[in-house]
Design a protein around this nucleic acid. Sequence first.
DNA 1: CCTCTTGTCACTAATATACTCACAAAACGG
DNA 2: CCGTTTTGTGAGTATATTAGTGACAAGAGG
Lengths: 314, 314
Amino acid sequence: MKRFQTLTPPISPLVHILCPKLSDNTYPYREQTNLRITGEHPVRLGHMTTTDSLEDAIEVLQQLGLKEYEARCFVGLSRLHTGTAKQLSEMTEVPRTRVYDAIRVLEAQGLVEIQHSSPQRFRAVPLDEATETLRDQYEGRVERLHNALDSVEIIDGDEEKSVQQVWAMSGRTAIENRTDQLIEKASEEIVLVLGDESLLTEELVARLNDAVADVDLLIGALTESLQDQIQTAVPDATTFISGLEWLHGENASEDETAIGRLLLTDRSTILVSSIMPGSKEEQAIFGEGFGNGLVVIARRLMAQGLLTARDPKQ
Amino acid sequence: MKRFQTLTPPISPLVHILCPKLSDNTYPYREQTNLRITGEHPVRLGHMTTTDSLEDAIEVLQQLGLKEYEARCFVGLSRLHTGTAKQLSEMTEVPRTRVYDAIRVLEAQGLVEIQHSSPQRFRAVPLDEATETLRDQYEGRVERLHNALDSVEIIDGDEEKSVQQVWAMSGRTAIENRTDQLIEKASEEIVLVLGDESLLTEELVARLNDAVADVDLLIGALTESLQDQIQTAVPDATTFISGLEWLHGENASEDETAIGRLLLTDRSTILVSSIMPGSKEEQAIFGEGFGNGLVVIARRLMAQGLLTARDPKQ
DNA sequence: CCTCTTGTCACTAATATACTCACAAAACGG
DNA sequence: CCGTTTTGTGAGTATATTAGTGACAAGAGG
């Protein structure tokens, strides 16, 4: 297989060529609910029916670590002021004899209350309280993870500062976070091209406005409407229509990979992302170091005027 | 079995008598890691070794939804700048051929980056970025849960406003949240007794100071030192030494259930919690309504001077 | 050219979870 | 009071997930 670092400047979608493996949509991901999480929220056409909402809630609860029975029971209880094992079993399809176990786990998690009468009656904790409890729980876990890991790190000295490293990441959230980090670290110049308005989050806008005080900020868009949006949100930036339309290209069929974002900071680190046609999953490649192959390509693109104001407004 | 609502005022630990089922420590909880979560953080004596930290991190990651291999791989990578499948397999005990799958899942979750060279090299996303990604992920899930459920609710009209309902809950976080809610809702009077200083969280102090503007606030403690602490933290409250010492009682052996908190708001809702001797798990019973049996008992305790200033300072 | 490494597949073993049934104790309704 | 139904528990089986193994083709590197 050809190493991507040695490629000459591309004439068709960058990510594909630079890192073909990213394109095959057949990653053996854990076939679990988790996958949807990193992507965007499931597309909703029109209004959700109640049934949909409930199914949805059950799914999310499982993602949050509950078992199927537990999730069903909680959702069942959410529709009742109070319920018995029998009622619950009937409405949730959970075998009655298993309701008790499920409820006990839920109680231990702080999600339901039990009335120890006979028959026992159960009720869900008020929704706000429940979500707050879940939040607290996860916040606690993340914190413990942080504590456990930040004390350790770095076992080896094998820090190949090699200049040819190109890394792949995926997941919208992760790529957003990396984008944020890079913008924050930039000291000279930021060149950003956005391929879709959904990428222009509040968080990102805030960071850009923070950054604009210290660095040159060039932001490109693929469409004029997006350019306007950006210019409004980040008034002090220089915006332009990207010369990268070819990323959608002549053969821009519907299930063609779309450009996500391109970020070049201080002419030494670059991040290019694309959005998978089917899953809408965002995938990115990332390189750092002035001499890095990817970065060199990006600089070359700039030199050719593809990453600067070709048709500057104002 | 006697119904607890019909009991006469107790002369030994309230929670036990009122709700004996709470006492048996043999709940068939899911024998999973989750249990520790609702309780307090594992007790740390002295300093953690690095190995401990790592084991810990692996455990927490699994609680956060990763599988064992995934967790081990991530922790392994956290100790390296960069690693290959072989290296990882050696240091983490994960079979080499399974490292690839694990890493791909991690990558999809935004926790590691992959360098598509040969051999492939992996590296963990910087810790702050990783935790932020996890946070975002869970925040998203909780939000989706909220959306899915708050539109629905209430299927039946069977709202027995019965006055004799007493509910059991457990889990420190859940009980804290309920305490907060009750304090916030109180409009006249709050009587609070704390059995342990660990229960006097910042959050609680803030809420109490908020509340003190609108309602009478009486706070009791089991020890003088705790009373002082409270008086300092919430200057406008009236504090007292609780007449409930008997809750620790003459037969206060070491593995005796300890009083957690007692909260009576507007003389119409009450929450009493205890702390399990072994697991330190907090369990509570909760009743509402002026005529509620539990609440009546609590009012009687007050009338006897057990829940008011017996030996008021100042 | 040969050898060791690397990545993928297809498989078995172990475990966790979903699902059933038998039964004793408690509630209920004459 | 007695027979009947409901309720809670325990002990199972079946099924899906996850942990763990081995065979093998392709690539890297002398």
